[in-house]
């Protein structure tokens, strides 16, 4: 990421808008015909903001699981990480589809950020963890990350308008909360005879 250093006098709002906050960085494929109007009617702006934030959050989840997946030693943890990875990869495709349906009015003005979700250090910690010592780092990094998603999803459920987005937020809150419990060594599953 490049940082532009500008004199104070140049910090006008217009400049911020054009250089600091340029909209429309991500090309958005056209929505399927006929779906835009109903989707826009169903989603409010906060739904769009929530989905956009969740896309970035999920991209980060996949970075974390990608870094940890092949290095963890505990079999149960490896299973959990793999399940998180496949479910969130599916969710990411769904969320991007919903944002496409929302149309250019919703996504064109949005902002795209692939960084600065407050936990860049945690990726570095994960990378730096020596072989054989990855498990506790991954448990902590992923638990903190998923807890943030649960918090975000909980707060969205009272302000969103789209039933399917609210339902998604409910499932995010439930699943991430349960994942945090599993990651923290909470009540764990016992293999039961079939």
């Amino acid at each position: 990421m490049t940082v532009r250093r500008l004199p104070a006098v140049a910090l006008t709002a217009a400049l911020l808008v054009t250089t600091g906050c340029a909209p429309g960085a991500a090309p958005v494929p056209p929505a399927p015909p006929g779906s835009t109007a109903s989707a826009e009617a169903a989603m409010n702006g906060l739904d769009v903001v929530f989905l956009t934030t969740m896309v970035a959050h999920t991209e980060r989840t996949l970075e974390i699981t990608g870094l940890g997946r092949d290095r963890v030693t505990d079999a149960r943890l490896r299973t959990l990480v793999a399940a998180i990875e496949v479910t969130e990869a599916d969710e990411l495709a769904t969320l991007r589809g919903w944002l496409r349906e929302a149309g250019p009015a919703a996504t064109g003005g949005g902002h795209r950020h692939d960084h600065n979700h407050g936990d860049g250090d945690s990726l570095a910690r994960l990378r730096a963890a020596p072989d054989g010592a990855v498990d506790p780092v991954l448990r902590q990094v992923l638990a903190e990350h998923q807890q943030a998603a649960a918090d975000l999803a909980r707060s969205h459920q009272t302000v969103g308008s789209s039933p399917r987005v609210r339902d998604f937020a409910r499932r995010v809150e439930q699943s991430r909360t349960a994942e945090v419990s599993l990651l923290s060594g909470g009540p764990d599953a016992r293999d039961e005879p079939a």
Partner: peptide, 12 residues
């Protein structure tokens, strides 16, 4: 001392 603006903006 550090009048800086990031591109893209860093927080929302």
């Amino acid at each position: 001392s550090t009048l800086a603006v990031a591109a893209p903006a860093q927080a929302h």
